[in-house]
Write a protein that binds this DNA or RNA. Structure first.
Length: 503
RNA sequence: CGAGGUGUAGCGCAGUCCGGUUAGCGCAUCUGGUUUGGGACCAGAGGGUCGGGGGUUCGAAUCCCUUCACCUCGACCA
């Protein structure tokens, strides 16, 4: 096996990660054709190649939701302003970033310069473009729920939402983004709590098995939790630059929204009680996590489970006759690969040279590339290159389908393992605030003791830009769960909590 | 909203300080040819409201006024 050394040239060159990680990310998203900025401030255009990845994510998540008993529905984009003010914490959390519809008609500008808002067409009650749908959904659930026989309700919706962010970055934070939001209603505290945990586990499973991104599951601190939730559970991933990315959240909402929207049901005992709720979501931000977890200075590295196509075949030919011979052989290989469930693209276009195609598909993160030329035709071989390790070797066509299938499995495992090894090497234990300030500069997760107060948490954030990502459910270092003393105040702490600088 | 910066061809930039031929360069695009196992080469061609508006001047990408947009850093955030 041979390692490839060369430089990408000119137009499509990426800024190296070591030089400017942030710039590398921006370059990659645009040059790999995933997304681009649109004419609308803060809103992106997701391009076909990027959208194909999102569709694969959607398909798998949707399958998992349905397997756990959920159904899809759709609720309106617009929310009456009054709905948003019914749950106090919830308004507080979202009010500052809402897009508001105030009019419903335009008219020709009297001075002839295009159109203006017709002042006559002012809405009686303004509409908010949903930043999340709890309010409209709970207003609806009120009509759906009367008795314990109506419960549970296990709904999900795939939708777009708008949060008017000050500063945006492709996929990581855009004013409009795509997501799914699950909203469930239950008879009991226990059942809702269990649902919230279950969906967090679904997210964890998806992110680790499909995106090949290891996550730490845990519960958010009071300051970090969702506006209106009793508890927020989270999966936290670590990016290559040492910053954490919250990749999915699942909220136990208690009876907060039921009370705000007066959703009561007749219990089995014939009494009236408020229902218990959860909500949970993942967004196109997952695309950011995917990109920043595996990719390198040559471009995107996609896990086979999410790649729009897992294999690309590039013919190397001098004339039409040769291309025809190669194509005939490639057709056989493609048929065999497809029979094994492998997705393949054959790029026989003659407008680009092989070298250009190699670089292009590397930039786009295609897991496996097969190259076939006259030499291979003669020898009954094909050149197999894998994206994750940038190695290539010449392999016999005999059993190539099984070989490639196994290779894809190996790549999937390898990139997860690589990310896991990196993540684990970046979890540190710190006992003094002085050490904390030093270690946080190096990036990564830090497990430290905290006295549990928002004041201390705020002080740490203020002084170090680090936030509490979560109180992890699992143990990562031997004494995580052993009580100790807060690194800042010295007050008692029940267990270590996870800190990091985050996106 | 605070502090910096940038607007010139599809993209990236030079030219602006110190006003003066027809506004240049690289990449991309198109045509013809030679090529094709890691982003080809040669020859030719097309492409511009110099962000917008106003002013100064014989003359403005360049100077002045004004306005808009975008980027980076902060506050806010999935």
């Amino acid at each position: 096996m041979q390692k490839i050394h060369y430089h990408l040239k000119m137009a499509k060159e990426l800024t190296p990660r070591s030089e400017d990680y942030s710039q590398w990310y921006n370059d990659l998203v645009v040059k790999a054709d995933l997304a681009e900025n649109s004419a609308v401030r803060g809103c992106m255009v997701i391009k076909p190649y990027g959208y194909a990845i999102w569709e694969k994510m959607q398909r798998e998540l949707d399958r998992m939701f349905k397997e756990t008993g959920h159904v899809n529905a759709y609720f309106p984009l617009f929310i009456p302003k009054s709905f948003l003010s019914k749950e106090a914490d919830h308004v507080e959390g979202f009010a500052k970033e809402c897009a508001v519809v105030t009019h419903y008609r335009l008219k020709t500008n009297p001075d002839g310069s295009g159109v203006v808002v017709d002042p006559e067409a002012k809405l009686e009650e303004e509409l908010i473009v949903r930043p999340t749908s709890e309010t409209i959904i709970w207003n609806t659930y009120k009509n759906w729920i009367h008795s314990y026989r109506d419960l549970p309700i296990l709904c999900n919706q795939w939708a777009n939402v708008v949060r008017w962010e000050m500063r945006t970055r492709l996929f990581l934070r855009t004013a409009e983004f795509l997501w799914q939001e699950g909203h469930t209603a239950h008879e009991t505290y226990e059942e809702a709590e269990k649902e919230a945990q279950k969906m967090l586990n679904v997210y964890g499973e998806f992110v680790e098995n499909f995106m090949a991104v290891p996550v730490i599951k845990g519960v958010k601190s009071e300051t970090e939790r969702f506006a209106g939730a009793v508890d927020t559970y989270t999966i936290e991933a670590l990016m290559q630059d040492g910053k954490a990315l919250q990749s999915g959240t699942s909220h136990f909402l208690g009876q907060n929204f039921a009370k705000a929207f007066d959703v009561q049901y007749q219990t089995r005992e014939g009494k009236l009680d408020y229902v218990w709720a959860t909500s949970w979501g993942v967004s196109t931000r997952l695309m950011g996590a995917l990109i920043m977890s595996h990719s390198d200075d040559n471009g995107l590295v996609l896990p086979p489970n999410l790649a729009p196509f897992q294999v690309v075949i590039v013919p190397i030919f001098k004339n039409d006759e040769q291309l025809a011979q190669i194509s005939a052989k490639v057709d056989e290989i493609m048929a065999k690969l497809k029979a094994l469930g492998v997705s393949v693209k054959y790029d026989d276009s003659d407008t680009k040279k092989p070298g250009w195609k190699f670089a292009e598909y590397e930039l786009k993160g295609v897991p496996v590339r097969l190259a076939m030329g006259a030499r291979d035709l003669e020898n009954g071989t094909v050149e197999v290159a894998r994206r994750d390790t940038l190695t290539k070797e010449t392999v016999s066509l005999e059993g190539i389908d099984v070989y490639v299938k196994n290779l894809l499995d190996e790549i999937q495992k390898n990139i997860f393992q690589k990310a896991l090894t990196y993540r684990n090497s970046m979890i540190k234990k710190v006992d003094s605030y002085e050490d904390f300030k030093v270690e946080i500069e190096k990036g990564g997760f830090i497990l430290a003791h905290w006295d549990g107060t928002p004041e201390t948490e705020a002080k740490i954030k203020e002084e170090t830009k680090a936030t509490i990502r979560c109180v992890p459910f699992d143990t990562y270092l031997d004494d995580d769960k052993v009580p100790g003393k807060c690194m800042v105040t010295g007050k008692p702490s029940k267990c270590r909590v996870l800190f990091a600088r985050a996106y």
